[in-house]
Amino acid sequence: MSIRAENLSYIYNEGTVMETYAIRDVSFEIGDGTFVGLIGHTGSGKSTLIQHLNGLLKPSRGTVYFNGEDIFAEGYNMKALRGHVGLVFQYPEYQLFEEDVLTDVMFGPKNLGCSDDVAKERAIRALTQCGVDEGRFDRSPFELSGGYKRRVAIAGVIAMEPDVLILDEPTAGLDPHGRDEILGMISRLHKERKMTVILVSHSMDDVAEHADKIMVLNHGELLFYDTPREVFKHAAELESYGLSAPEITYLAADLNAAGISVDPSMSTIEEAKEEILKALGR
């Protein structure tokens, strides 16, 4: 279930004075079951890039291969692709429309041709995995709290049981607690369902903890695509692009400056704990 982008470019208003490259000549391959963090600040082309991966946007140049097949080739089954590559947009709660939570989540599976029973079964499973309890299934999605709306919307895509799950800033506008819950939930899905996950964010802290690989976009160009440790070695460069390394990287630098030597490329809280304990000789 690999996704491969080849020389992907997307140009807005081609041929006018407003011509701009949203993404420029981006190539990469995402292997099965990888958790990729896609980082870049506002306007770097993150959202544009991911919309190419399930065929919502057609590239100006280049193409995308899903399992070796060109998804923009004539006659490619886009609907089937959308069942394989699930995309959760930014503020997904704005796409809710049904009378009750369960029916809304069933929308996706039913579009894929599932019977009512199968769709219901999938919806219940997805909602449970997203931490929505049964008591809320019959409620109107519009009367739920912001955090729950977001969960229901994410469940709406997960119920389609995609092999690849792409989430565009799923933690935007949530408080730290809600953020941790959503990220934990995504990480669990990744482990339990062996899903490939692409998590879009502008915060390194969001992705450092869970991602196997980090992709950094700046002004539509792919700067880095590597393991978090490798990417965070370029902390100074990242800063010059207006991105910061995770807090842990700064902590490591501060500790080293203070004479407590730790591995400067530690990137998760777990690693940091071990490093610091080791450095302190305990």
């Binding site: 919309q51 399930n54 919502l56 609907k79 959308r82 069942g83 699930g86 995309l87 959760v88 947009f89 997904p92 704005y94 796409q95 929308f107 996706g108 579009n111 894929l112 709406g156 895509v157 389609m160």
Partner: peptide, 10 residues
């Protein structure tokens, strides 16, 4: 945006 989001849901 909504059109795209719903298209993504099939």
């Amino acid at each position: 945006k909504i059109m795209k989001a719903q298209t993504a849901r099939g």
